[in-house]
Design a protein around this nucleic acid. Structure first.
Lengths: 343, 343
DNA sequence: CTGAAAGCGCTTACAG
DNA sequence: CTGAAAGCGCTTACAG
């Protein structure tokens, strides 16, 4: 019924609600947005009227009038990876509830510069910005902090900007220790270079942490045991083939993402080698398909990172929130692709 | 420079551009949106002025004034599957170019009803709606067609609404034939039930096509050879375990999604069975990880489906586009999980 | 081809 | 606690 009436009359506006409730549009606006200083009885009247007319505010009008865009920008170097889409999913989940929109962009160097330097063209469309795995550094962070745009950095630990990240060095250490404890002495590493010229500190941190952990155990990481896997399935496959073609190949390999591991496992199969027996493979992420592969890996709660980032952004947007770093837990998930070295 | 000036002055509005170019705001508006009947020289002046001021139109104001929401709704039963996110990615890619926004929702029965019955609350926020794998049927389609909201249906072949879909029966036939040609006689099937009570015709069509193809070859599909895999990795694993526990298990199984196959391959590994030798497994999709699994499957170009759907929506929104069905090609990708039956 | 002006549907000081 | 009114930044008949 209400349905039919409203569709016959066209969409209800705030004026319709005001008339129906016998108050002014200003009061409707306040009542519907839970402002203080609205009499309880008035609020009820307004709510009922709005309900009767199936009223829903025109967000374009609201945003224009308030000057709030109610959208936040999200920048990431690689939009198509599982990791990024998981983060985005987490962010979106929280924002959908809060009725915020997400404007997603690739963090090519140009976009990155625009943000750091406060390009009007970008800023005018957003209330805040979330940077995912875009190398920022304290310098960039300080620049960000001077902008009037709230910012959250995901994937890096920073002082001047609120950030959330895992401890990449610790993740690397977990992987290295696991392989070392299993008895491996010849251990390989597969990382990835930056995409699109975006500087990316995550691979660097992980590589350094890994090398350090090996060193602490009296082992070396010779450059023939390091390959670039491009953070892709196919890249992981190529990297593993390269590693296995060495005259004395590694007996265990850490790849910095599970997707690269999928390719690496394919390579081993192509070489008639059995993962966990002939060569040990350990990943990073705990991708949904990893369990099916039996992949041993370092788990990071990616979606939670996105959710937390979104909530921190919301806090900043509402004026709460102090600048701080939020660490995220990492843990080893043992499955069947790791074992003692052969022989 | 221009950068600094503009940020010092705050954001440029259409009035600023009009002043700078020495024309009216109406002319700026027309020139910037490539309207006909703007003198070439005027257009140039306006474009240059806009550029100098780093002007970008406030979309909220534009939408409010024009009455266009410039957003289209997308409904799908399961938002988190690879298939859906691929479709969404394709749609978004096209919409981003056209500066349209996407409003994504779960097609729970309520939302579905709201759309079909033209709920004002939903419609007032969108210019059109794309339904992904939401069971529609000719009846629903006719209802959709009477609404003033343009609609596109993905995953079903319809007469009254523009639709794009693969031929599910044909896909099923391709899978069945491949297994039959390999010599299999005891063939299993793993599909999935509807989520969230949403009726979903895809599994039904595929199951029917599969049974028909087996029948055409003189084979039967006994109910002990049919399992529900829930279209999830874990569901595929459970389904395969169930199938393999039959007293006389199938020698080959078609699972209606690659993700279910991942779980199925895990199950085989747990049972010390080798896919392609002891049991043949064939999927549907060609997921990015499928190549790494060596999975034989029926490939569908999912992202292309999303892209096409978006373009068709754009056509409708601009008044072009006649109602028609757009078929999408399917093809067999042979890898290593299928072989002749053992013995 | 171009301009003056009304209007889109809200929000928000300002005044009471 | 509430209302009258200005204003947000565009678009679009209407007139010329």
């Amino acid at each position: 019924m209400g349905d039919d009436i409203s569709s016959a009359l066209g969409r209800a506006t705030i004026d319709d609600v005001a008339r129906e409730a016998g108050v002014s549009t200003a009061t409707v606006s306040r009542a519907l947005r839970n402002h203080a200083y609205v009499a309880e009885s008035t609020r009820r009247k307004v709510l009922q009227a709005a309900d009767r007319l199936l009223y829903v505010a025109n967000s374009n009008a609201a945003r224009l009038a308030s000057g709030q865009t109610r959208t936040v920008g999200l920048l990431a170097p690689l939009l198509t990876s599982w990791y990024t889409s998981e983060v985005v999913a987490g962010v979106e989940e929280v924002f959908a509830h809060a009725r915020y929109d997400l404007l997603i962009g690739t963090a090519n160097p140009l976009a990155r510069e625009k943000i750091f330097r406060g390009d009007a063209r970008f800023q005018q469309r957003i209330d805040g910005v979330i940077l995912v795995d875009v190398f920022c550094s304290e310098d960039g962070a300080r620049q960000l902090a001077t902008l009037d745009t709230p910012a959250i950095v995901l994937g890096e630990r920073l002082k001047s900007v609120t950030s959330v990240s895992v401890d990449n060095a610790r993740g690397a250490r977990l992987a290295a220790r696991h392989l070392i404890d299993l008895g491996h002495r010849r251990i390989g590493l597969v990382g990835g270079h930056a995409h699109l010229d975006v500087v990316h500190n995550v691979p660097t941190e992980r590589a350094a942490g890994f090398a350090a952990a090996l060193e602490a155990a009296g082992l070396r990481l010779p450059h023939q045991f390091v390959e670039d896997g491009d953070f892709s399935i196919e890249g992981g496959r190529r990297a593993m083939h390269a590693l296995m073609s060495r005259t004395k190949p590694p007996t265990a390999v850490w790849l910095m993402s599970d997707e690269m591991c999928f390719g690496a496992l394919q390579a081993l199969r192509e070489l008639k080698l059995v993962a966990g027996r002939d060569v040990s493979v350990i990943g990073f992420d705990d991708h949904p398909a990893s369990n099916a592969f039996g992949l041993t890996t370092i788990r990071q709660p990616v979606r939670d990172i996105g959710r937390l980032g979104a909530r921190l952004m919301l806090d900043q947007l509402e004026g709460f929130g102090t600048v701080m770093h939020h660490p995220i837990e990492l843990n080893l998930v043992e499955r069947i692709t790791c074992g003692p070295p052969p022989g």
